[in-house]
Design a protein around this nucleic acid. Structure first.
Lengths: 172, 172
DNA sequence: CACATATAGTTGCTAGTAACAACGAAAGGA
DNA sequence: TCCTTTCGTTGTTACTAGCAACTATATGTG
C-alpha cells in the first residue's frame, strides 16, 4: 500500500534458496530422529508418544489431562488413552482432584520416573557420542542454534490455529 | 584401569553437559516439527508417513516396495499398506516388473506429483517465514549445521542394528 | 434454589501406523 | 527337479489420532 521502504522485499531469491535448503536439511534431520527415537524408546516398553507423556510429566510434575494434552499437542481423547495405557503399565497414577471432582491428577509413579530417567540417559548418551568429536565452542553454537530454531518454530506454531485454513482441492 | 593417555577421557563434565543441552534442544525441535508437519500435511488428504513415501518416490523415482520400505525405515508390511492407501487415493501406481514377476514397481502419478509439490511448497514457505529475520550468513550457517547433525545421525543410525541389544528390565 | 451453561474427562467410531509371523508366488542354484 | 532365497501380501495385535457424543461436576444468573 505505502511506498516500499522496507529493506527486505517480498521476493528474495537468496532467501528462497536458503529456505529450501534449510527445509530439506531439517526435514531429513527430523525424519532420522523420529526413527532413531522410535528404535531407542520402543525397546523400553513404551511408544514415542507415551515417552513424550513421561517427559511432560517429569518436566511439569503432576498435571491434569487437559494440560497434558495441550503440552503434547494431542486431542484430549487421545491423551486420555495414552494415560490409560501408561497407567496399565504402571508408569503413571490417576487420582481425583480433592476440590474439583471433574479433574484427574496424573502423576509419574516411581517406576515411571525410573523408566524416564533410563530412556533419557540412553538418548543423552547417544547425543554425547554424536558430538564427542566436535570442538567445545562448536558444540555450544550448535545447541544455541537448535534452541533458536525450536523457539522460532514454537512461536509460529501459535499462529495459524490448529490446522490449515481453506483446503484448496487443486493439486494436479 | 590402564593409565589415561587419551586426550579425551571417558568422563568429561563439559561434554556431558553439552550433550544434555543439545539433547534437550533437539528433542524439543523434533517434537515441534513433528506436530507442525502433521498439521500442515494432514490438511492435504495424506498422513505424515504417506507424505514421506511421496517424498521418497519424488526423490528416487520409480522404486520397488523393498527399496521404499528401507528408505522409510519401515517394515515391508507397513510399507505395503502405506502404498495401498496411496494407490487407493490415486497418488501412486503399482505395476509388475517386466523381467521379475515378484517385484512391484511403485510410481508417483501426476496427481501424486502435484500433491507432493504443493505440500513441499507449503513447508518451504513456512521455513522461509521462519528465517526471514535472520542475517544471510546466519541462515547459511544454520543450514550447514543441521545438515551436519543429520549426517552424523545417519551415520550412527547404521550401527546398532534395528533395535537395542539386551533389554535390561531394571527400571526402578 | 433452579436452571442454563461451561468445563473435564471418557467412550464410540473410523482410519491409519507399526511390527511380527505366516504365507504364496516367482526366481535362481545345485 | 528340488531347495533356497527373495518379494510382496495378509492376518493379527496394539497403539495413535481426531471428531462427536456423552456423563459428571462446577459455576453463573434469575
Amino acid at each position: 500500500m505505502t511506498p516500499q521502504t522496507r529493506a527486505r522485499p517480498k521476493t528474495d531469491p537468496a532467501l528462497d534458496r536458503d529456505a529450501r535448503e534449510l527445509y530439506e536439511a531439517l526435514n531429513e534431520l527430523v525424519r532420522l530422529y523420529q526413527f532413531r527415537d522410535r528404535n531407542i524408546i520402543c525397546c523400553n516398553d513404551v511408544s514415542v508418544t507415551q515417552c513424550y507423556a513421561l517427559q511432560a510429566l517429569a518436566r511439569g510434575g503432576t498435571m491434569n489431562l487437559g494440560a497434558l494434552a495441550k503440552d503434547l499437542f494431542l486431542d484430549k481423547s487421545t491423551a486420555s488413552r495414552v494415560v490409560e495405557t501408561l497407567e496399565r503399565k504402571g508408569y503413571v497414577g490417576r487420582t481425583a482432584h480433592p476440590d474439583d471432582a471433574r479433574v484427574t491428577e496424573i502423576t509419574l509413579t516411581a517406576r515411571g520416573r525410573g523408566l524416564h530417567r533410563k530412556i533419557e540417559a540412553t538418548l543423552v548418551e547417544e547425543e554425547r557420542r554424536l558430538i564427542a568429536d566436535l570442538a567445545p565452542d562448536v558444540r555450544r553454537a550448535a545447541t544455541d542454534l537448535v534452541r533458536d530454531l525450536a523457539r522460532a518454530a514454537a512461536q509460529r506454531m501459535g499462529v495459524g490455529a490448529s490446522c490449515c485454513g481453506p483446503v484448496a482441492e487443486d493439486h494436479q
